[in-house]
Structures are given as C-alpha cells and as structure tokens.
C-alpha cells in the first residue's frame, strides 16, 4: 500500500518536471537568446537595468542642474566663480566667491581640529585599544555620525554659540588683540562656530575610515617591527606610513563631507556673503546659501544662479570624493 502511494507521488513529480521541460524547450525566445532558462536572462537584464539607472542618475543630476542654470551661466560665465558680489536685491549680480571662500575656510577649520583627533582615535581603535574597549568606542563614534545634522545645528545655536560668545571669543580677543583672525564684535555666530561644529561632524568619518584603512595593513608588518625591538608607538608609525595614502583618502572624505554639510553650518555661520579674515565674523557657504535663499528666489536669474551654485558644489564634491575613494582603494587593495 505504502509503496503504491510512494510511486504515485513520484510519478506526479516526474510528470511535473517532464511538463516543465517541454514548456521550456518549446519556447522560441530561448533559441533567440541562446540559453535554456528565460528566467535567468530576465533576472540578469532586470538587475542590469537598475544598475544602468543608478549610472544614469549621476549623469542626469549634472545635466539637470546644468540645464536649469543656463541663464546665469550665459550672463556671468566663468566670472561667477571669482566675483565677490552676491546681490539679489538690487543689481541682480551674482558671484560665488564669498561662498566658495566660506565653504573652504569653514571646512579647513573643521579639518584642522578633526584630522589630528580623528587619526588619533583611529590609531587608538585599531592599534592600541583592548577588544572590550574597541567595540563600544567604535559604536559611540558611529552614533556620533548618525545624529541628524539639524540636531547639531540646534545644539550649536543654544549651547555652542553662547559659549563662544561669552567665554571663548572674548578670551581670544584678550589674548591676541592684534591678530587679524579675531577682530570684530564677538557674536558667537560666525566662521569659528561653523568650523567647530564641522570638526565634530567629520570626526567620526575620518576616524572610522582611517580605522578600516589601518586594519587593512596586515599584522605581519607589525610583528616584523616588534621583532626588531620597536616600541608600540614606533610600530604604529610604521603602520601609519604604510597606510599613508589611505589615510589621506579618509581625510579627503571628511573634507568632502564638510564642504557639503548644510544645516548645522547654516544655523551657526551667521549667513552673510562677505570675505573676512576674522574667524569671529559671520560668513556664508555654498550649501547654506541654497538652504537659506532657494525658496526666496523671486527672479529666474536668481534661481538659475542658485542652481549653478549647486552645480559648482556638486562638481567639487564629486572630484574630492573620486580622489578620496581612489586613495582609500589603493591602500586597501595593496594588502589584498
């Protein structure tokens, strides 16, 4: 009885497969496509389609911004990049120089603090920290990267800026009365605040990528150095020099993040289109102009100029990121 039942089920299976084979071999599409399995072809083409979509997206983004900024490109040409007047109200002359200056200066300030700290943290996490400390510390730095930018800004407005205004900036002015970097009234809002906030924000990026880069250096390098009688710091120096280009890539990635950072900077930088050597003066960045003025752009030329600014920012970040990734890849690939 049991055997009969078994045979029945297996005959069902066999029948099923036979049918499915007939179905497959009869399709003329299969012959055209040169394979027996249509599903495989469809699946491959479908995933390919999405990959092409992502590829086109990047190209399309550039085109979209270019085509919506033609008015401004025609009117100002390359002067757009070197003109320091941004006057939407009266003359409708738009020059991006103050914003490019502000973007670069604030990012540079941010890196000035974040690079030494971030690299030290990376060294600590990859070379020195015991395993039980490494995990929670890595987690905490990643948490720092996960806090929304607008919350950094909120904290900046109500905690950092008052502290700078009441304590740090008066102190700096007292200590360095003649320094060109600390002139003007201490508002709190300004380049210094933007630089500090940016340093906090890019620090986790620099430290976590540097940590990965350092970890990709094989242990044999360290063991060889230890065996020669090197101290821990000397071993670390060797590891650092081995990972140099990757670390530079990590810094570039931090830089890329800093120049594109919008909300936190907009909320503390003071938003004034001027070029000033004083870190206490308000400034402007490309990203914060967009955040501030985009919805207020009343004329077509104004809107076009803003979109052109976005295009400039896009091109700069793309170049910075490309270089950064090439550097990081080159180090990580070296040890594979």
């Amino acid at each position: 009885m049991d055997i009969v039942k078994d045979r029945e089920t297996f005959e069902k299976v066999q029948d099923y497969f036979k049918k499915s084979k007939e179905k497959k071999s009869s399709g003329f599409l299969n012959k055209i496509l040169g394979t027996n399995n249509l599903g495989d072809i469809i699946f491959e083409r479908l995933t390919l389609l999405f990959a092409v979509l992502v590829f086109l997206l990047v190209v399309f983004m550039a085109w979209e911004m270019y085509s919506h900024s033609t008015l401004s490109i025609k009117q100002f040409g390359w002067k757009f990049l070197i003109n320091s007047t941004w006057d939407p109200a009266v003359t409708q002359v738009f020059g991006a120089l103050p914003m490019i200056f502000g973007t670069m200066l604030s990012s540079f300030l941010g890196l000035l603090i974040a690079v030494p700290l971030g690299l030290s943290v990376a060294v600590f996490l990859s070379e020195l920290a015991p395993a039980w400390l490494e995990k929670p510390l890595s987690f905490l730095t990643e948490l720092l990267a996960g806090i929304p930018s607008v919350i950094y800004g909120l904290w900046g407005i109500f905690v950092l800026v008052p502290w700078l205004r009441d304590t740090v900036e008066p102190f700096l002015q007292n200590e360095f009365p003649n320094s060109p970097f600390f002139q003007g009234a201490p508002y709190g809002f300004g380049m210094l605040a933007a630089g500090l906030i940016l340093s906090i924000m890019v620090l986790p990026i620099i430290s976590s990528i540097s940590r990965d880069v350092l970890k990709s250096v094989p242990d044999t390098q360290r063991e060889a150095a230890f065996a020669l009688g090197a101290t821990r710091w000397e071993v670390t120096k060797i590891v650092l020099s081995n990972a140099r280009s990757g670390l530079f890539g990590a810094i570039m990635l931090g830089f890329g993040r800093a120049i594109g950072e919008t909300m936190a900077v907009t909320m503390v930088i003071g938003n004034r289109a001027q070029i000033s050597a004083s870190l206490l003066d308000p400034g402007y960045t490309m990203a914060s102009v967009l955040a501030n003025e985009f919805t207020e752009a009343t004329t077509d030329l104004y809107l076009n100029a803003l979109i052109e600014l976005a295009l400039v920012l896009f091109v700069i970040t793309i170049i910075v990121n490309m270089l950064a990734h090439l550097l990081v890849w080159s180090t990580e690939r070296k040890w594979k």
Binding site: F17, K21, K24, S25, N36, N37
Partner: peptide, 8 residues
C-alpha cells in the same frame, strides 16, 4: 541538455 533539467 538544459543544465537546470540535467541537475534534477
């Protein structure tokens, strides 16, 4: 043969 069918 279709490899899928063959492997069955």
């Amino acid at each position: 043969l279709d490899p899928v069918y063959l492997r069955r």
